[in-house]
Design a protein around this nucleic acid. Structure first.
Lengths: 226, 226
DNA sequence: CGCGGCTTTGATGTTCATCAAGTAAAGTGG
DNA sequence: CCACTTTACTTGATGAACATCAAAGCCGCG
């Protein structure tokens, strides 16, 4: 029950305006796959063969450092391209990807993408734009985090989930306290401590994984500089 | 006394294998400019009109944070593309660039680049690769720095200058202690303190701006972890 | 020659990591 | 399904790493 790319409601604008022939290539190459919580989609070091597009779900992009330690680079959500970061610069992935929430992924052969780049200049330009935007944002996030103190980082990450991922002032944290720490360079203990502080200060309500933001403005201020 | 791109000995491999017509476009559009120490090439926020290529010299890529505070993102050297980071994702620069060492820059109209992307798929692919590599390395550097303690960061930056920029175990630091701090997220005082430690431990010789690495291996170990 | 920015060292304070210890929750195998 | 093990969560106490403050010498530049 595979959708035809031309008619796909999840389709990224990246694939708008292709020729009939190019859509044909896409449909021929394209596969779809479902992944469950905790599954690894690929590991750092594996050869890149495909171009991956996340239709639905939530993923974690990370690196393994030493033993039992992970550095989380970012969270990928619906309509994100995955592995695009290394797809053109390396032959092997530089980060690993695992599933946070059940995900639907479109898989397109890299050779097909290469062929479309060759035949379609607008596609190439749009891809350049997309890639640049992703990289910009990742770097921006890192620079931003490294400037903030722990309270600022914690506020920042709560806002990220509320605004960018769930678009709601109330949501369930999809990751553990430990993983939050790995994402914003903090120890687990401090993530917990500061979340508790925010609760005591009545900036958020928090019960297990569930978070409700009570004072958006104060949170934004703490994130900005607190 | 402008060189023709086809014959340019500084030419990046990015421009290899263009057609006669495409070289024609390049030569028509291309300008060259010299900049002296301390000059600002462009500021964060300015509209992007050109594609810049550094033939010779050394530049500093940075962001202004608050008042009198800068975050240095990286150092650009010969054969680097400048502003490529924002060129495709934004209409305005997101970082500023200033000159550390006298520089020679090639200036090509963005429209010309766009036209070549349209007409030449290989060029598009190579550009995608180049852009990805630059971004990868920047992000990698940031992640790396954030994992290290201050001694590790200081060792890392000395090695970066020695290996990537000057390719020599003896060189003059092109930037101030303060700027080193802005590059690797440290206070000026701590940069100085740790450089002094390294001297006392006979890992480096240091006299003003001049640095000589005495124990490359120990420095590498400290950078790696310690 | 004097002002402002860079460099250096020492003293002090704050922030955050680490250690420890206990409870709760979630897998796992019999 | 229950006992068991592991992993996540939480709080407090302690110490190390780093920022901040202060003061003085140096250097380049108008």
């Amino acid at each position: 029950m595979s959708t035809i790319c031309e008619d796909c409601i999840y389709r990224s604008y990246l694939f708008n305006g292709l020729s009939q022939e190019e859509y044909g290539l896409l449909n021929l190459s394209k596969k779809e796959a479902s992944y469950g919580k905790g599954e690894i989609i690929y590991r750092e070091g594996e050869t890149i063969k495909n171009f991956l597009y996340l239709k639905e779900g939530l993923l974690k992009v990370f690196k393994t450092i030493g033993k039992n330690k992970e550095q989380i680079i970012g969270i990928a959500g619906p309509r994100d391209f995955i592995g695009l970061l290394s797809a053109f610069s390396k032959s092997r992935y530089i980060y690993s990807i695992s599933v946070i929430e059940p995900s639907e992924i479109c898989i397109i052969d890299m050779k097909t993408i290469q062929r479309i780049i060759q035949s379609n200049g607008s596609f190439a330009t749009t891809l350049l734009t997309k890639l640049s935007q992703m990289h910009d944002q990742l770097l921006e996030t890192r620079l931003s985090i490294s400037q903030k103190n722990l309270r600022g980082r914690t506020a920042y990450i709560i806002l990220m989930f509320a605004v960018e991922i769930y678009n709601s002032h109330r949501f369930d944290l999809p990751i553990s306290r430990k993983e939050i720490g790995e994402l914003i360079d903090m120890r687990t203990e401090n993530v917990i401590r500061i979340l508790s502080e925010f609760r005591k200060d009545r900036i958020i309500k928090i019960e297990g994984k569930n978070i409700e933001i009570l004072e958006m403005n104060r949170l934004a201020q703490i994130s900005e500089f607190g």
